[in-house]
Each structure stands twice: as C-alpha cells, then as structure tokens.
C-alpha cells in the first residue's frame, strides 16, 4: 500500500508516494537526502532526530511521514534561512555552538541546535536551569552539556542584540 504526501521542507515543496509506515526521519534522510537529521535511539528519548514540524520541535523517529503531510518542516540544513545571520550563513544558535565549543562528535548537534532554537523562541532569556530543563530531551555523550548551556546563553544574548 502506498500513500501520497505533500510537504514543504526548508522552504521547498515535495510530493511523494510512500509506504504509510515510512518514518518521517527516514523520509527526510533516505527520500529527500537531508542527512543532517540523525537517528540516535529510535525510542524518542535522545533527540538526535529533532526537526521543526510546523515550527515546533518533534522527534522525527516517532512520527510517520504521512502524519506530516501538509506540514512545513525545517531541518538543520534549512535553519539558517529562519533567522538573520551574520553574513556567514549561520543561524545565531549555530554560531553560538561553534563559538562556545558546544559540540564534539557532532552527532547530537543538529537536534540539540533545533531544540535550543525552540527554547529561545519560547523563552528568549533563559536561566541555566531552564536551559538544562528544556534540553533534557536531547542526549549528548561527549560534551558534558556545559558548553552547550553556555552556547545557548551566548545565542540568547546575540539574538537580543540583533533584534535591536
């Protein structure tokens, strides 16, 4: 059995015939070739597969592609188009992760960045405990999280100054 879906991913429209059981993460990675979204745990715990679905973070390993039909999706590849950049093509949160050494192996990073983007949208001035709480759905095995927390603080500052 196959189903038809239409989605907009990173501002581009796609129509595909897919099996209804196809997971969104596999659709993005294998059908559209957007491999920046990673698979970490498959049980919606680690957050490596986080994408923005109609502006909200979801774990794309636990969403069927058919459920996303008609939606707007942003993956790490399309993030920089979402915010004013410094002319270097990077979203301020991406810049901040770079600046503060918020990543090592980089595998959790796309999900971590997208979760941070959602956090800063909801709470532009988060405290450290708020950052840690908001990122508790994203696991990182390398950094010990501290540089990630600093990166989010740095991004918050940066985004505020850019808005002015």
């Amino acid at each position: 059995m196959s189903a038809e879906i239409q989605v907009r991913v990173n501002g581009k429209s796609y129509e595909s015939q897919i099996e209804p059981r196809l997971l969104l993460v596999h659709y993005l990675r294998d059908v559209l070739g957007l491999t920046g979204t990673h698979i970490g745990c498959e049980t919606s715990l680690c957050g490596a597969c986080t994408v923005l679905l109609d502006g909200k973070t979801v774990k794309s390993c636990t969403v069927l592609a058919v459920q996303a039909s008609g939606s707007e999706i942003t993956t790490i590849e399309g993030l920089s188009a979402q915010a004013p950049t410094n002319g270097n093509g990077l979203h301020p949160v991406q810049e901040a992760f770079w600046e503060k050494h918020g990543l090592q192996c980089g595998y959790c990073t796309p999900g971590m960045i997208l979760a941070s983007v959602e956090l800063l949208r909801a709470n532009p001035n988060p405290s450290q405990p708020e950052i840690r709480h908001a990122l508790s759905g994203n696991l990182c095995r390398c950094t010990g999280y501290q540089h990630i927390v600093q990166a989010v603080e740095f991004a918050a500052k940066k985004m505020k100054s850019r808005k002015r």
Partner: peptide
C-alpha cells in the same frame, strides 16, 4: 510528561 518534543506531539 516526557520532554519538549514529546509534549509537542
């Protein structure tokens, strides 16, 4: 419940 992503969905 769960985490932000889970609560969104």
């Amino acid at each position: 419940i769960g985490d932000v992503q889970v609560r969104n969905r």
